[in-house]
Write a protein that binds this DNA or RNA. Structure first.
Lengths: 135, 135
DNA sequence: GTTGATAGATGTAGATTACACATAGCAGCA
DNA sequence: TGCTGCTATGTGTAATCTACATCTATCAAC
């Protein structure tokens, strides 16, 4: 079976929607920021657009899990801003993610411009035959 | 507002769960393969484990959207295998994804070991102040 | 004929997300 | 004073996605 469950250290990663999550965390690593601002940065970063509602909800979710913390900033004029900053846990999470991302990139890279379907997979010489001449 | 919708070419990306999706497509770029095999490769690739049910369902989904195609392979002994191969559309999708991934990486990189919150963002000099001495 | 590995699939609860819409502060302007 | 528009944060909801449990079936070995 493939269904590994309690072997390996079980990573906190959901691995899924969290390009948004991790980009937010990365942005917050250097500056504190509020939702609207982060949404703008995302939109200008060349990544596919994220819905602003989703951004706000994601930030609250991140706060609930302790990766970021927030406080109301009323120092500027205009509507109050909820300022976010990265917590220690957030920093740790972020670096683990960078790790996973690196592996993902490596797998993709290896697969794309070479062979070897997976990292250290010991080819049990029963590999599916290559496609007919790569079309 | 941030909510861009019909500007820019509207990418087919969902951007979320699709590290699985794209890894599968990448694997299929070099060889045809069946679900069980792909699930094994994923498990050994150093990525967080994906549920095999999810793998099968994702493959069917990819077929429904035309990124891969499949046929039953009964040439080997044992249970029949549903062999998948990448379609032309799948190849195109994959390369666009590589693109997005590149941008994502760049954003992350720039944010992590430098400054400049986003790619070409023209600093409207109203940037949130840096955190107190990077703790 | 029982067991175990291979191979694929579904049922389902909970989470996530896109889209639409709501609320509120403030600025400019007539 | 009323209106409009931008900033800023949110909620309601349906559709979709995912982890986990479970199921079916083929075949080999014993």
């Amino acid at each position: 079976m493939v269904r590994r469950k309690d072997d390996e250290q079980d990573t906190p990663f959901r691995m899924h929607g969290d390009l948004l999550t991790t980009t937010l965390l990365a942005f917050l690593r250097n500056w504190n920021a509020y939702g609207y601002q982060l949404a703008q940065q995302l939109a200008q970063a060349g990544l596919p657009a994220f819905d602003s509602g989703t951004v706000y909800r994601t930030l609250r979710q991140l706060e609930k899990t302790g990766l970021v913390s927030s406080f109301w900033d009323t120092s500027e004029s205009g509507p109050a801003r909820r300022m976010y900053s990265l917590t220690k846990a957030g920093e740790l999470f972020l670096s683990s993610w960078i790790d996973v991302l690196g592996r993902y990139q490596a797998v993709l890279q290896k697969t794309l411009d070479g062979f070897a379907p997976a990292a250290g997979i010991e080819q049990d010489d029963e590999q599916t035959p290559p496609r007919a001449a790569r079309r």
